[in-house]
Design a protein around this nucleic acid. Structure first.
Lengths: 230, 230
DNA sequence: AGATCTATATATAACAA
DNA sequence: TTTGTTATATATAGATC
């Protein structure tokens, strides 16, 4: 009968830990709802446990989405004030790279059309043009809504690192000669394209527990994949 | 001296409400941290109040991002089980539309190249080709990381509706004749392209309190914008 | 605005059925 | 495994500083 003052540390006894979890979770959710009612404020709680496959949340799913949608907007404001956190750092990298990417895209486009026109003018290689693999110029990443990931259980201990492995760009696959372009690719580009194994991983919508761009799971770089050499 | 049992209702007295909020928030956060420590589980809490401009969260920002990232993955699993909620409905629409989009994109590509070749062969209109506006073929949406939205305060009352207004596609702007393509556009396409006012809104990264695609604030349809007629 | 006090309400650890 | 009991720890309403 609670004769001991709780020691604030992980409860090693599995049974006791589970019992404590259930009791305290119940109490906590009650407190959460009380605070919301008494003070008329927005609040949400999300609890993961090994005992439930789904996280237990307050309030209901719709309500929590409302609160989260509100929360998701915050980092955009924060970073405009303090520009030191990792998120803003990555965002800056993306912004800069996007500019490069846009230029590159435009260049490639120009070269491709120039080349087509040149071949037409010289009257050679028309058959080659017909062979141009249009499938590879498409938008492969759009099928991302399929293939749900395996159910997440316990999250791994935090391992903060720059997710360079996640920043992937699709390679140009057409038969158009792009040797010049490849040579001109700046360092940031080649850095992010050196890991082909990420491609499949990304398309299957699965990923590990590594840090990712906050609040935008579903984009997982469709921006990149769609934008380059489309 | 707490002689009254609390009535579980909104505290009308402003002063009392604020006092209660402060005390209970402190207690709640303590409970949250205790539960996390004692049972070694992932948990987060987000509290909005009129008394703080920023939401008060547990754990710290990094930790909460980790938990939220985990949470964000959930809908993908859920929808594979129960296919009845709004999110999955929208996702299905997107998946289906993406397929159509891909075909359309491929068709346009084929027609454009065919036309270029035809013009080259007949020896006419080479000047027109040079005038092709390459800027409009680019990737405008990539500059989204600028222009933070206005600070959110209290969230508006929930107004659930299908965000068709948000689903926008960029119009083809090149001088290539696409009359045939326009005529062939299915109903879903024209439905989603009839509201030009949404364009600017989307590019400026601002939006109201309307429901949005869950857990993916930042994509706000870059998929669409980049993918169509690139 | 907070800090402290204190009586009471509430939560819960250990045990039992 | 859950439910109930109970002694004790903890939270907190209302007052005061």
């Amino acid at each position: 009968m609670t004769r001991k003052k709780v020691k604030l540390a992980f409860i090693t006894n599995d049974l006791a830990r589970k019992a404590t979890f259930k009791k305290r979770k119940k109490g906590l959710m009650k407190k959460v709802s009380e605070l919301s009612t008494l003070c008329g404020i927005d609040i949400c709680a999300i609890i993961y446990s090994p005992y439930e496959s789904q996280p237990e949340v307050w309030p209901d799913n719709r309500g929590i989405h409302r609160v989260l949608a509100q929360f998701k907007r915050m980092p955009e404001m924060e970073q405009s004030k303090k520009m030191v956190n990792q998120e803003s750092f990555i965002r800056q990298r993306i912004a800069k790279a996007s500019e490069q990417l846009k230029k590159q895209h435009k260049e490639n486009r120009e070269k491709e059309i120039t080349r087509i026109m040149y071949q037409c003018l010289t009257g050679e290689g028309l058959q080659n043009l017909m062979m141009l693999d249009l499938n590879d110029l498409g938008i492969d990443e759009l099928k991302n809504t399929t293939a749900p990931p395996p159910p997440p259980q316990q999250v791994a201990p935090p391992s903060p690192h720059i997710p360079t492995g996640n920043l992937y760009m699709q390679e140009q696959k057409s038969t158009v000669d792009l040797t010049m372009d490849v040579m001109q690719r700046p360092q940031w580009f080649t850095d992010w394209t050196n890991n082909p194994s990420d491609h499949q991983q990304m398309n299957s919508f699965g990923h590990g527990d590594e840090m990712m761009l906050p609040f935008c799971e579903n984009n997982h770089n469709t921006m990149w994949s769609n934008a380059i050499f489309p």
